[in-house]
Design a protein around this nucleic acid. Structure first.
Lengths: 218, 218, 218, 218
DNA sequence: TATGAATGAGGCTTCATTCAT
DNA sequence: CATGAATGAAGCCTCATTCAT
């Protein structure tokens, strides 16, 4: 087992993800991280070449699997109906973000600031995402599954829904008692998104898969 | 005129809003602010009792007018149809946020971190907002205008849509060439939200006010 | 008097010159300096924009007066005999270096390392010096005062003599009991240089001004 | 062959000499050295008992052969004319320093700082050197070869000439396009020193061995 | 009301070294 | 012999704030 070998590195990463998520990147000090990880401060620079390296790895750890989910679905675009694939991707993204809600919150928040790091690392990921999603909706429209909604607005709308509960986790919990890290929540939230897809995105002649009532019984 | 009197204070505030919006609260130093405002550093403490005071005023400057918009609409809830009032509120919020996009971005981002300040100041605003919105949707359901969608999910969905373009301004501009600070954008974006309301929130026997085509001509 | 105003800055500079001279630039820490100057550490960055700023000011404080001495002499080159002017310059340089022996030692040592700072700041000074000295010896040869010694070697030889006792102050004191900061030493050392000039540089038909015996009585 | 056995040790030494020469002792880190030597960091402590051990070995590697050159000449003092022996020593020192210009520059610079290490290690070497050189000049004066120049000043002058081009290698190259590591330079530089000896040190009735013209053809 | 000097705390990073492997 | 992990100390610098003016 290399568990022991990599443990320090991983302990730092875990602490960093938690603290960046909680207090923000700039609001977290390297000492905070190292002391939470029960590890010497110098190890942060040793393993990650500095605090910024930690953030960069956070981005990677989020976007790499995130894009993989989308890519997996894109590959099947010529074989299956776009709306079904879209729902599959959404389900997987919600599950991923729910299981890595600390990571998700921190990344979704940090990509929001105008820093060189953010721009350099994230822009390539986001451009890739844009490419995939655009392709995806175009295929769906070609297939006659989606109504000709402007793609940019559809994507923006979709991304709003996917990120909001996670970036605003504190709000969700304290104001609405909804727990984004809980499977119960994501299941119901999935249905809520599905309804938006059915009612707004899908052409009216496409069968609506799930009845409204499914998420009503709060 | 108190223009001269208050000018230093206002110059600081403007600089702070811009920099918090751009680099985040913790990523901005008091010296950044004072030098951007062409003002002595000590004035920040003098006028705002420290850096934190600046952030607190930012929250106030955002939430005070924001809640006013909602309150104004709430007062008319017994006289007018809920969906029309909702659209009115959305329109006004979008306009407000568009006109104060720096302030909006910074507030929407900072309420995302778990700090004592944020919690103490914002939670009361957000609880108020929750109260109003809940009341609002309940009335709408009573009126038979809204279908019995779970209110929490409706609010979350609505808030996603209202905040996403502003908190992710950089993404909107660089990836989709959409400019949230531009009236052209908010007008089209308003229609996009309206469609969601019509198709998802409204009972099906309620007349859809705007045809899909309105926002299609991208 | 602005003595009080500038005292902190000057106290730092004095401490820095002493310590750089003693332990070398890299061997001296900012805390060493600030504590020797009885001043808060942060003031170093406040007044000099960092440790490197201190070194840069050291270079300036050395080279500015040093070149002034040479320039003053150069201006008289068309009116007076080159050898007399050369002796005047040497006398003044020795006096200056003797009175600022800490500064001189540190500068003469630090220009010896290959750092970007050193190169950028000093090279312009040294090129100026080269220009003046070359001009100077050319004129002297034209005047028929200097024999046609290769100028580069003459300059190198001269600079050796001018800098050696100061950069090797410790050696001078401990090995030879010669005290470069003492006027008695520089006076005798001046005669020693003069002899080299008379015997080696001057054409043999030029009268030797000082007899050998002058520096013999050690 | 012990080539493999000692290769790590030697690789470290070579890297250290180069880096100390370039960036100074304190300006060089152990990691700089180990990475330039393509060797693990811990080996530095293993082979040299720490960074300081490296410097100490540098001093040894310089002074040991340096003093040997002088000793070799001293042994012949009763058999041959002092001026000829002096020239022999100078020639050999220049050659040695030219062939080990990295080592020479670093040592000549580091003996310039007031550190305990420097003092302890170098002072004995320098005292030995003083002893030899003093003896040497005394014999020369006895022999009636040298004029009664004060010995301390003669030694200082000589040492200036011997060290200056090497400690100021960068200056020599960039300002005067003279290359102290090149045999062409040392040959000409030797003549330049010889002229100083002939004209200044030697009694006038001693024959001047080399005419001025020898180094004129730059 | 406005300023520049000054400060102590804390920021991140690098250092030389040690140690188990 | 050689290695990579790990460490505590120290490096330099920036921070938000205060204070006398």
């Amino acid at each position: 087992m290399n568990k022991v070998v990599s443990s320090t590195r991983e302990k730092i990463m875990t602490a960093a993800i938690y603290l960046f998520n909680t207090k923000g990147y700039h609001g977290t000090s390297v000492r905070d991280i190292s002391s939470r990880a029960n590890v010497n401060v110098a190890n942060v620079s040793y393993y990650f070449k500095g605090k910024q390296g930690l953030l960069e790895e956070c981005f990677t750890r989020f976007f790499e699997p995130y894009l993989l989910i989308i890519e997996k679905v894109i590959k099947k675009i010529d074989e299956e109906r776009a709306d079904r694939l879209l729902l599959e991707a959404i389900k997987n993204i919600l599950t991923f973000q729910s299981q890595h809600h600390h990571l998700s919150r921190l990344v979704l928040r940090e990509i929001t600031v105008d820093s060189q790091v953010t721009r350099e690392i994230c822009s390539s990921y986001l451009m890739k995402e844009r490419y995939y999603l655009k392709l995806f909706f175009e295929k769906g429209i070609q297939q006659g599954v989606f109504s000709p909604f402007p793609i940019s607005f559809a994507v923006v709308h979709l991304k709003s829904l996917l990120s909001m509960p996670f970036i605003n986790k504190q709000y969700m919990e304290e104001v609405w008692n909804l727990y984004p890290h809980d499977k119960l929540f994501t299941d119901r939230y999935f249905l809520s998104i599905q309804m938006w897809i059915n009612k707004v995105l899908l052409k009216s002649n496409i069968v609506h898969q799930e009845p409204l009532s499914a998420i009503v019984n709060q």
